[in-house]
């Protein structure tokens, strides 16, 4: 099957320091991909690259069979309409309340759905992440964990073809972490979308991720299933795929 994301030979320098070096990544459609690796290995950057937000210095990015052209505004628009992202920093808008934050991707599409449909979908999404009754609150009134769940709801609301979750359970307690992973798994099954998620919680990731990708020092060093990875010759791959959160 044709991959949803095909990144080839991507490199990026930040003020002279290479942060991505000749990195490639292939994501087949319709499954949950797990991205693991130590802090600073480039997980967030590769996620931003495949969300079209980071323009690499060299290499090519192909999304849904189209090569990303950063100069073509309409082309970028069309691609971004098919992508939903939960950012590591959450990136919730502090000038909007919870409802408007979650509704944002729906409202900002070229032809938004009718108001009562937006209402209904936002409330469903909030109930799913365990935050009913919070729609009218402003962000500073929520705890860090609750804000993380709002960001999750916003990333999932439009049912995008490609959903990106950067550390969706950071700072959450173990019980809720499990629930978030289950939610992401269910979301993928229901929508058939391609999901990629970066996390350190390998143990819980194994329950939903069909395929793992290991990053180290700006390179992808392994793609495959967890069992093969854990028996790999490379000690780094074995370590990253067996660490407990």
């Amino acid at each position: 099957m044709e991959p949803v994301v095909e990144i080839a030979g991507v490199s990026k320098l930040f003020s002279g320091t290479p942060v991505l070096q000749d990195c490639d990544l292939r994501l087949e459609p319709g499954r949950v991909h797990g991205l693991v690796g130590p802090g600073g290995s480039g997980k967030t950057l590769i996620l931003k690259t495949l969300s079209t937000l980071l323009r690499p210095d060299s290499g090519s990015v192909i999304l849904f069979g189209t090569t990303v052209d950063y100069g073509d505004r309409d082309g970028l628009r069309a691609l971004r309409d098919r992508i939903g992202v939960q950012f590591q920093n959450l990136a919730l808008f502090d000038f909007l309340n919870v409802f408007d934050n979650v509704a944002f991707p729906l409202v900002m599409t070229p032809d938004p759905p009718p108001t009562d449909e937006i209402d209904q979908r936002v409330h469903e999404a909030l109930v799913e992440v365990g935050l009913p009754e919070t729609a009218h609150l402003r962000l500073p009134e929520l705890s860090g964990g609750m804000q993380r769940r709002v960001a999750l709801a916003r990333a999932a609301i439009s049912g995008a073809d490609l959903m990106v979750f950067d550390d969706p359970t950071g700072g959450l307690d173990p019980v809720f972490s499990s629930r978030i992973f289950v939610l992401i798994g269910e979301l993928q099954e229901r929508t058939g979308s391609t999901v990629v998620l970066a996390s350190h919680d390998v143990d819980r990731m194994t329950r939903i991720c069909g395929r793992f990708h290991v990053m180290d020092q700006g390179r992808r060093i392994y793609s495959g299933n967890i069992e093969d990875g854990r028996e790999s010759e490379d000690r780094r791959i074995r370590t990253f795929l067996t660490v407990e959160a």
């Binding site: 969300s51 937000l53 971004r80 992508i83 950012f87 990136a91 919730l92 808008f93």
Partner: peptide, 13 residues
């Protein structure tokens, strides 16, 4: 610095 600008961009805003 909190990535809100990127969140706008990915929503095509």
């Amino acid at each position: 610095v909190t990535d809100q600008v990127e969140a706008l961009e990915v929503s095509n805003t």
